[in-house]
Design a binder for these strands. Structure first.
Length: 258
DNA sequence: CGGCCCTAATTT
DNA sequence: AAATTAGGGCCG
């Protein structure tokens, strides 16, 4: 499908596949008053931390999704530096993945809500190291120059021109994995997604990405998709609180902004 | 939990 | 060419 890289918001090109809320396991939305509010089924394990909220997948020992916001104020006024502190998430009562699961696995503990977006407050930075916020990622994908690394840096660049962005990101847990690692059997996902919303009127806009680990040396721009497509792949419903007209419109488009 | 190493990109 | 930065690993 042809990608539309536009500055503004285009009109819906097609009728989006209608996803009934009853069919969805979770609903994520952004409250324009300031904070994320996450709706979820009772069967879901939600951990709400200081700066991000996640839904935990016990079988795969990693999150279904991680939601947070990044603002210009936060990103460009850091109050601390990164201090590695990978550890279990105390809020995951069933037990999250552990460091030993990743040790000598060949995969790194890849942040989903990036540490680099959490340096505005010590607690935010420190809590980003919970293993509930991690998925197994190759260093070539997540590290310097990798496709995922590039996308995370692009989000930080977009904040320069969009004061506030809402990000929901996670692994594609569709049953098709590379392998399982560690005593807790952590799934190694083949693909990861990210959806980004600029909720500020009047140019409300959104874009999605689905990146495969094996495409570590590709350009993430070639993998821009509509939020609808990410919803179809993941079974999630993003930005549920937006007025339906706005939600339908922005989610159907493959709109990126330079 | 420090200390030291790795990789790629950027800066000087 | 060397140092720095931003993602990490691994060892005692």
């Amino acid at each position: 499908m042809k990608k539309a890289f536009l500055l503004g918001l285009a009109f819906a090109l097609t009728a989006p596949a209608s996803l009934s809320a009853d069919d969805l396991d979770s609903l994520v939305y952004y409250d324009v008053r300031g904070d994320f509010i996450v709706y979820y089924s009772e069967s879901q394990l939600i951990a709400k931390h200081f700066a991000y909220t996640l839904s935990y997948n016990e079988e795969c020992e990693q999150p279904n999704w991680v939601a947070y916001k990044v603002t210009k104020e936060r990103l460009y006024n850091p109050t601390c530096e990164r201090v590695d502190h990978f550890r279990k998430d105390p809020l995951i009562v069933t037990g999250s993945a552990s460091n030993s699961d990743y040790a000598s696995s060949g995969y790194s503990r890849g942040h989903l809500a990036p540490c680099g977006d959490m340096l505005w407050e010590w607690q935010a930075m420190d809590e980003s190291f919970y293993l509930s916020n991690m998925s197994p990622q190759t260093q070539t994908f997540n590290g310097a120059g990798g496709t995922w690394w590039d996308l995370e840096n692009q989000v930080r660049e977009w904040v320069r021109e969009n004061d506030e962005l809402c990000v929901v990101t996670g692994p594609v847990l569709d049953g098709d994995y590379v392998e399982w690692i560690g005593n807790n059997d952590v799934a190694v996902p083949k693909r990861f997604y990210k959806v980004i919303l600029d909720p500020v009127e009047p140019d409300v806009k959104a874009v999605g990405f689905i990146l495969a680990q094996e495409d570590y040396d590709k350009d993430f721009r070639d993998y821009a998709v509509s939020v609808d497509e990410v919803e179809q792949v993941t079974g999630l419903d993003f930005f549920y609180s937006l007025p339906n007209s706005v939600e339908d419109e922005i989610e159907a488009n493959e709109v990126c902004w330079p």
